[in-house]
Design a protein around this nucleic acid. Sequence first.
DNA 1: CCTCAGTAGTGCC
DNA 2: GGCACTACTGAGG
Length: 179
Amino acid sequence: MNTHSSAPHRSPRQGSPVQVAIDRCPLGLVLAAWTSQGLCAVLLGDDRAALLRDLEARLPSAALVAVEPSADDPIARVIALIESPRGAQELAIDARGTAFQRSVWSALREIPAGSTASYADIALRLGRPKAVRAVAGACAANPLAVVVPCHRVLRSDGSLSGYRWGVERKRALLAREAS
DNA sequence: CCTCAGTAGTGCC
DNA sequence: GGCACTACTGAGG
């Protein structure tokens, strides 16, 4: 029995409901999903149905509860963050992933707005200088757009590589943050 | 400009 | 346990 080392960490969310809201933002539509513990998904897109499908694929066994966007809810914080990238670190998050993915996402949150890092930088920071592609994989699996700023990770030569929600959005986010 | 090998995590079988 | 994927990178045509 070796089920403890690499099994994905499951958030304490078995039966607890996940609130879901969709609203407009400067990048199109944004879907935010959260529990009492914090945000578990922030997805960008142009189509409500596609966003919901994406969420359901990511949280297959969650009880989703749709709510109207409200100024008191985390989705308002997320939209404010897109408009002005400050205070992302204060948002509580409740993302599920493997230990490795969570360590990558945690490192990403330490990249300040206005600066960028390469995949190799992140790998180095984690003490796994050769796990470069794995870092890219963890970025690609990031469930929390903008809040976990995977858009600040570029290739070593400075080019943009990919973005789960479209390279154009990555470019737009970086342009907005450029100091 | 291009291709290639090295490399490590993940998902599917 | 395989095995085939990568949002990579540095070296070499």
